[in-house]
């Protein structure tokens, strides 16, 4: 009896095994993505380029190392971060439909970034900092407007997100409409999520933040598990609810700010991936956070590969691809389970 009971309980080895399997899939997807593109490069050439045995003047070397690889790494990191953000928002707002994009956090953060760009601040410090401030401010707004007295009712929070999103998008559009023509294409692309500007320098800035933040959030896994069952419930079990909420929301704002500053608005990743992970592995955040984060990296690399190959040699903003997948997904979720979630 006891043996039977124990076999379904989460253990560290299960978390590690699952993470390793998913990392394996991530490696495969990365390899496939490196090989796919307008210019044909064979897997054998890629291997030679990556191991440094290819001739230095090989044009494929430039494509792989200077263009595709940084872009794929950025896609991976951004997908990873967006999914972790989605998981944490969903847990803390106790709302399975929460996602940084839907809640308006992404556009709040973009608003911060646009102001920084308008002020002429640089991408190495000014843009990410204001972008972080924008994310934090939006989260504060959503929590304050959506949760006062109404007990964080799901529909109120989603509506608050929609309104905030609309407002910030309007401000961003007004900035864009007065900007010069030559920057219009870049800005529009950025507004729909653009990973093509991936550079190793940026990766070095955001990678440590995203990885360390995710580890801290992972350390809150059990607290988040219990917070999803209700704040009062969590307090009864000894969770320092306010502290956990504050720390994790600040951390999520930080990574959202960074992600938006370097990749623009990519929607629905934080909705689709955590949801699939939850369906596959259950609601325990100790498995959900690793599964969703690595899954997010896989998903966004795949989506971005699609974005740059589907109308090759031209390309689509990756946010268009994720929105094409995400919007129907959201509607299906709402139809299937909405009644259960929207009512308190």
């Amino acid at each position: 009896m006891m043996e039977n009971y124990r076999k379904n309980i989460l253990t560290p080895s299960r978390v590690i095994t699952l993470s390793l399997i998913m990392l394996g899939v991530l490696a495969l997807v990365t390899a496939a993505s490196l090989a796919l593109g307008t210019a044909d490069v064979s897997l054998k050439d890629i291997l030679e380029i990556l191991t440094g045995t290819a001739p230095k003047d090989d044009p494929a070397r430039l494509i792989i190392l200077r263009i595709r690889l940084p872009r794929i790494l950025l896609a991976g990191l951004v997908g990873f971060a967006l999914s972790v953000g989605g998981v944490v928002f969903q847990a803390i707002l106790r709302n399975p439909l929460a996602d940084p994009f839907i809640l308006g956090v992404s556009s709040g953060s973009a608003f911060g970034a646009v102001i920084a760009i308008a002020l002429g601040l640089g991408f190495s410090l000014g843009v990410p900092v204001l972008s972080f401030a924008g994310a934090l401010f939006t989260i504060y707004l959503v929590m304050a407007i959506g949760s006062r007295k109404i007990g964080m009712e799901s529909s109120t929070i989603l509506l608050t997100g929609v309104i905030i999103n609309a407002f910030f998008t309007a401000i961003i559009m007004s900035f864009i409409s007065v900007s010069s023509d030559d920057r219009l294409h870049t800005m529009l692309f950025w507004l729909y999520g653009d990973l093509s500007q991936g550079k190793y320098g940026q990766l070095l800035i955001i990678a440590p933040f995203i990885i360390v933040s995710s580890i801290i959030l992972f350390a809150f896994s059990r607290d988040l598990n219990i917070i999803t069952t209700g704040e009062e419930n969590a307090a009864q079990l000894g969770v320092e609810v306010e502290w956990v909420k504050k720390v994790s929301l600040v951390i999520v704002s930080l990574i959202m700010g960074l992600v938006v500053a370097f990749s623009g608005l990519i929607g629905f990743v934080g909705l689709i991936v955590p949801h699939l992970a939850r369906m596959a592995f259950g609601s325990d955040h100790r498995v959900l956070i690793p599964a969703a984060s690595i899954g997010g990296a896989i998903f966004l690399i795949a989506a971005d590969t699609l974005a740059r190959t589907i109308i090759s040699p031209s390309e689509l903003p990756v946010g268009v691809i994720t929105a094409f997948m995400g919007a129907p997904f959201f509607i299906i979720l709402l139809k299937k389970r909405g009644s259960q979630w929207i009512r308190s």
């Binding site: 379904n8 309980i9 106790r94 598990n225 999803t228 259950g282 325990d284």
Partner: peptide
């Protein structure tokens, strides 16, 4: 408590 609202699915064992 009198009522508990679980938004996410946990098993009884969990």
């Amino acid at each position: 408590a009198q009522e508990n609202h679980f938004r996410f699915s946990f098993t009884a064992a969990e």
